[in-house]
Write a protein that binds this DNA or RNA. Structure first.
Lengths: 335, 335
DNA sequence: TGTATAAATGTCAACGTTTACATTAAAATT
DNA sequence: AATTTTAATGTAAACGTTGACATTTATACA
């Protein structure tokens, strides 16, 4: 037996409009009527059909989020912070795992559009610029998170990758290291590129010439950490210190370092981008650049909800790009 | 300007029914017509309105999942595996962060019901039995994951907690430890209780009397690990080995152990429930019970989708409870 | 060429709400 | 008590699909 607003109306002896008004706490319903309606609702175990409501109101109170990979700590924190804020404002969240794969990203963008989500938070792969521009032009509410897309003008919330990496590498230099290796991420992402740039700026300010043998280009995955660390450290002329561009690659680097039997900081100085409680309880806890991951997620969500509500968040129609700062936490991974 | 199936129909010069047929790849549309329709669709950038479709079909192709806390590795793996399987079958996933809070759980159950999700995967807090029973009685499709609820008969996918803990503690005993401490989780959860029972069974089989001073009841959170490890290890008559019941508490335990300057395995033997790559690169990598977390999520989702499709998954109307096995991986945390 | 059959397409109600507008009932004013 | 004003409730169309059924068009057959 199907229970809908009509059943409730019949039971309470009023019209569906009145039920609707009670459901949404509209004024202008007599207290007595309201009581009767609520009674009917509870007796029938009625729960509004949000699908029908969404159709009628052209509003789903749902936001979609496409992340790179929920398995990585970074994205799971993002997911949580987005969900927290979303629910605070009465929104649901559909989580999509883009897997850093442009095709999956595209598929999910379409799914989210089909489901008429009110807004989308996207950690872009950097591709699909055409489709995303089309979305934006048809008035879709989108906020980019963590990364930008070439050829797309869109509000975004980022982290100051360049400055973060700069601080870490400068710290290594200040501690006396000169030959500093770096494992970067994808250089076609603002994150990967920015961190490399920070590294280069620190070197150049210190008058240390760039040595391409010390620059290894990774993919932000554990495997890159394992392999590239090995390449760097097996070199007879190996670096004295290492800067790793994210947490997953740091895990990989530590695996290799352990395997090679090297000790930090005696055999190798280290500093890394991204923090985790686990790297703080290592033998030699690692000096790390802490991203404000939680704020990233919540700031983006707040901005998105403002956009959804039609509030301007940038000035004079330019997209607004919010850049959050990082923190360097000094631990025990340098001499 | 709003684009809907009518716009496409007008543009292609056919009726909406035909558009609908093309959209869903129904047979019986002439090739020529289909071409024309597809052209109109692409020219208008039309994307079906899944909300309207859901309303009409009384089917949302969405499943909801309520997890304890996405921040913990366990749940983020669950979220990913559920999402993978769901999408394989064409379902979306709404992720809800129950925060192990019965009230939030209840709120989310209602939200998911209002949104008419086709099914729910629930990692239950153990409360809300009444409401959940009502849901089940009104034919909601639910699969419990990881834990059961007192007073609720429902399909579930679990891990053999008792056996897992037993294997780990037996291993400690086999290595010669007698005074073994345990940090448990909530004992009103099947997970917490099961792991304690495994511990107790291993002791009793070895003829080691139970010592309540060695049993500390935690909350599955880092803080419990920190505090209870301290309590155990500050005791002059402290245990020779320690079994910790989950990963978050293991992190806490390691923090305390590091703080106290103790070395594993010299000063303390250890075995833990839950694995992580981080505990495998510690100084002394920890012997751990590995849960098949990914299978937990995918098995539950497969079961849920079967239920949704009306396939019986248990026998003679009894709920089916699937229990997955754990693995003990021996590392270097014992003498 | 006309008719029977099969294939393709069209029509319209239904899904469960909300909301502009219309109507009725109650309260205020004379 | 009759009239105006205000408050409470009802009516019905709309949101964008789908799908049972009806109708038209194409094909096969005599």
């Amino acid at each position: 037996m199907k229970i809908n607003i009509k059943s409730v109306a019949d039971k309470a002896g009023v019209s569906t409009a009145t039920i609707s008004r009670v459901l949404r706490n509209y004024p202008g319903v007599r207290e007595k009527t309201k009581k009767r309606v609520l009674k009917a609702i509870s007796e029938l175990d009625y729960e509004v059909n949000a699908v029908a409501r969404s159709l009628r109101q052209r509003k789903t109170f749902t936001i979609g989020i496409i992340v790179g990979n929920v398995l990585s700590q970074f994205y799971s924190i993002i997911a949580k912070s987005v969900e927290d804020v979303a629910h605070k404002y009465g929104y649901n969240m559909i989580l999509c795992n883009g897997d850093d794969d442009p095709e999956k990203e595209l598929r999910y963008l379409k799914v989210l559009k089909a489901n008429r989500v009110d807004g989308i938070i996207l950690t872009p792969t950097g591709k699909n610029a055409d489709y995303i521009n089309r979305l934006i032009n048809t008035d879709a509410k989108i906020v980019l998170l963590d990364r930008l897309i070439d050829g797309v003008e869109c509000d975004a919330v980022l982290v100051d990758n360049e400055e973060g990496a700069y601080k870490a590498v400068k710290y290594l230099i200040d501690r006396g290291y000169r030959r500093i290796g770096i494992i970067t991420g994808y250089l076609d992402r603002t994150t990967g590129k920015g961190r490399l740039n920070g590294y280069l700026r620190a070197l150049s300010e210190a008058g240390i010439p760039r040595d391409d043998n010390l620059i290894k280009i990774g993919k932000f995955k554990k495997r890159s950490g394992i392999e590239l660390t090995r390449e760097l450290l097996q070199d007879p002329n190996r670096p004295e210190a290492l800067f790793v561009s994210n947490l997953d690659m740091t895990l990989g680097a530590m695996i290799t370092i352990k395997e090679m039997g090297l000790k930090i900081p005696d055999d190798l100085g280290m500093a890394v981008f991204d923090d985790s409680e686990w790297i703080s309880i290592l033998d030699s806890p690692l000096t790390a650049v802490i991203q404000p991951v939680h704020s990233l997620g919540s700031t983006a969500t707040e901005a998105l909800i403002k956009k959804i509500n039609g509030e301007k968040i940038g000035m004079n129609d330019k997209p607004i790009i919010i850049t959050l700062n990082t923190n360097l936490v000094i631990r025990n991974s340098t001499k």
